[in-house]
Structures are given as C-alpha cells and as structure tokens.
C-alpha cells in the first residue's frame, strides 16, 4: 500500500559549517506527519526546531538521511523540483514578511500569482474573500505599515492559505502577537486546515496551542525525545 503521509523523515542529520568548524545540530531524526494533522514542534531554544522545519519545508538542502515531502525525496532534489514543491506549501513566519509596498490584498494575491496568470478577476475574489473571512474586509487596501501586528499576521496567514496549500509550515507564528490575537491566529490556522484537510507543522512555545495539536514532537539537542499523538474525539 502506498504511504500517503505528507512528511516522512528517516535518519535525518544536519550540520552547519564544514570540517573543524562544523556543528551538527540534528541527529538521526525519524518523524512521520499524518495528512490533515496539526503537529507541534517544541523544545528548548537551540534544539533544532527551526532547522528541522526548514528542511521539511524544502527551504534548506537535505545533507544526510531522507526526507520525503508530498511523495518527493528532498535529498538531492534539484532547483526545479524544489520550486514546484514550494508552490504546494504555505509558510507563516515569525515575522510577517509582508511586502511593504503592496497592500493587504496585493500581498495575498502574490500567493496566487505564483501559480500563473490565472483569471485576474477570480484571483481578486479569492483574495478578498479570504481576507473577509479573517476579519480584514475593511483593511484590504491598507499597506502593511498601516496595519496592527495581529492584522499583519492575519494577512500573512491569508497569503499562505489562499492557494490551498497541502502543507503549512509555521514557526512561532504567534511570537509577535499578544496572547489573545496569537491564539486566535492559530485557531484560525487550525480551523481552516481542518476544513480543507491541510497538514500543518508548527513550532511554538505557547502551552495553550498544545491543546489544539494532534501530535506533539519534542526536540532536545537535535534529537526527538518525545513524540505523542493525542487521542482526539471527533
């Protein structure tokens, strides 16, 4: 039977730098992420969470071991394979990374345009609709400079979600937000994910978010020390 888990990692190592100066930060990671789940990565600072996320998300070259993302081996994947894979993913960064000279709607449109010209009218509608869903209906023509931190983060989430990605990677998406809007943003990510069957992998320190997770993976010193799958009703 074909294994349809979107992320399957086996024996993954990672080293920054080379030779004497090299520093290994990931050691023999084995991990499997189920389709449609919300997986949380946690662990102390410097334990390798971000490094693991960028490797799974095809943003960093895999050096040793195997990482299969959406059925494609990332170890040795060429530029074009990476580009095409990235288009099936969504990223929410700790910093919103919105483009300062594009307004909210234009920033979201960038998430659609990567798939080609499409029908401009339909793109426009999809972006507006999603921003409305996220409570930004009145802010669509605002530049990022005129939005609050929480609003910017929601625009960034809209940009990540608008193209219906198969996997969403988020690294401390709530770090820049206060508690309530942080939780609201993650709830939103999870709900939209559930609705669309999207797989989400998220790094976070926020204990309240853990309650929303299907699976919690704990890293320490570059190795997985705990991997709990939470039984969930429904």
């Amino acid at each position: 039977m074909m294994d349809d888990a979107p992320i399957i990692i086996e024996g993954l190592d990672h080293t920054f730098g080379e030779g004497e100066a090299g520093k290994q930060v990931l050691f023999g990671i084995d991990l499997r992420v189920e389709r449609g789940s919300l997986t949380v990565l946690m662990g102390p600072s410097g334990s390798g969470k971000t490094t693991l996320l960028t490797l799974m998300g095809c943003l960093r070259d895999v050096q040793a071991g195997s990482a299969r993302l959406l059925g494609t081996e990332l170890n040795g994947a060429d530029e074009e394979t990476q580009v095409l894979l990235r288009r099936r993913l969504g990223f929410v960064f700790q910093a919103h990374n919105l483009h300062e000279s594009l307004n909210a709607r234009q920033n979201v449109l960038m998430g659609l345009q990567v798939h080609g010209r499409g029908e401009p009218g339909r793109h426009h509608l999809a972006a507006s609709h999603l921003l409305e869903t996220l409570g930004l209906g009145a802010r669509m023509d605002y530049l990022p400079a005129n939005l609050s931190g929480g609003q910017k983060q929601r625009v960034a989430i809209a940009r990540a979600l608008v193209s219906n990605p198969e996997v969403i990677f988020a690294d401390e998406p709530t770090a820049a937000l206060d508690k309530t809007s942080g939780l609201a943003a993650v709830t939103l990510l999870r709900d939209l994910g559930r609705l669309r069957g999207t797989t989400t992998v998220m790094v976070t320190h926020d204990p309240r978010i853990l309650e929303l997770a299907d699976s919690i993976v704990t890293l320490e010193d570059g190795a997985i020390v705990r991997n709990e799958t939470l039984a969930r009703a429904g």
């Binding site: 580009v83 990235r86 288009r87 993913l89 960064f93 910093a95 300062e100 960038m110």
Partner: peptide, 11 residues
C-alpha cells in the same frame, strides 16, 4: 526579506 519570502513561496 520580501524576495526571500517570494522564493519560499515558489517564485
């Protein structure tokens, strides 16, 4: 940073 973000998005 914006360009890097676009790269991450698959541009």
């Amino acid at each position: 940073r914006e360009y890097a973000t676009f790269k991450a998005m698959g541009y």
